[in-house]
Design a protein around this nucleic acid. Structure first.
Length: 271
DNA sequence: CACGGATCCTGATGGC
DNA sequence: TGCCATCAGGATCCGT
């Protein structure tokens, strides 16, 4: 589920409330994608300093080291005071002086990983190859165009790859390409500089709007308060196969690229 | 080495 | 309280 907007919405929903908390207890459930990397009790007594985001990772700065949380396909974080007993899919829980953080993740593609610092090999392995942040100053149209020129594959695949830009997943890749008027199957290297600039802007626009709408909730996403997102209600193409394009009424088409569904309008999006 | 495909796991959905 | 196939917001690993 979670792409950059959902991760950012999650971060915003509990970062302020957890900052300054003292960790009182940590427990883990069934194995996630990667092991925690330290005994849970090593975290007890530490202070939570801040919650940041890098790509689709939440970074929780501790007084000694940091935790990296990835939500995978089906993960969600909740933070509160009055929780029922751990559920079947609650696989990580951290009780603090300011509330309890839980990760619920049915498919267990997510992870919670402890690292001693961002230069720790464990952290570097996960964060080291990530591309530029799309909502930062470093995301530059000219540089983006240069990055695309190096890639021979379809632009949709390049966006998902996370090397040219991070945080764009399956929903927002289709949406951004629609806004930019670019066919998802177009080879990245063939995209002109002006069209790369359009796509650059479209990515920023789509992600910013999605964050403002609280993210997308297709099946199970919610922020740390349990509130769902609404972006999907105004998706232009995602999951709209056969429905009329919101711009030109041509039926939306779908195809598979790298085992993922892609949605587009043949009329509005040119190769 | 760049690319495509299989893979991890559980649950929902729809056809038969 | 049927069974089976397919699909789901991610990302790594492994062939070619």
């Amino acid at each position: 589920m979670p792409e950059l907007p959902e991760v950012e919405v999650t971060r915003l929903s509990f970062a302020d409330r957890v900052a300054g908390a003292r960790i009182k207890a940590v427990s883990v459930g069934k194995p996630l994608r990667w092991p925690l990397g330290c005994p849970p009790r090593q975290l007890v007594g530490q202070r939570v300093l801040a919650v940041r985001r890098r790509g689709k990772y939440l970074l929780i700065d501790l007084s000694d080291g940091l935790m990296l949380i990835h939500l995978g396909m089906s993960g969600s974080v909740s933070f509160g005071d009055d929780f029922p007993a751990l559920g079947k899919h609650d696989h990580f829980e951290m009780v603090t002086s300011l509330g309890t953080l839980r990760l619920n993740d049915p498919r267990r593609f997510g992870a919670v990983v402890y690292a001693r610092g961002e230069s720790d090999p464990v952290a570097h392995k996960l964060l080291g190859r990530l591309g530029v942040e799309p909502l930062s100053e470093a995301f530059d149209p000219a540089a983006f165009h240069q990055a695309l020129k190096l890639r021979k594959t379809a632009i949709k695949q390049v966006l998902l790859g996370g090397e040219a830009v991070v945080g764009v997943g399956n929903i927002y890749a289709s949406e951004a390409l629609f806004l930019a008027g670019i066919r998802p199957t177009t080879k990245a290297s063939r995209i002109s500089k002006p069209r790369a600039a359009l796509l650059h802007r479209a990515i920023q626009l789509v992600l910013t709007q999605a964050i403002a709408k609280g993210g997308s909730t297709l099946r199970d996403f919610s922020n740390a308060h349990g509130e769902v997102g609404h972006f999907q209600l105004e998706a232009m193409v995602y999951d709209r196969t056969g429905l009329p394009c919101r711009v030109c009424a041509t039926p939306i088409k779908s195809l598979r690229q790298g085992q993922r569904s892609t949605f587009y309008c043949v009329s509005c999006q040119k190769p």
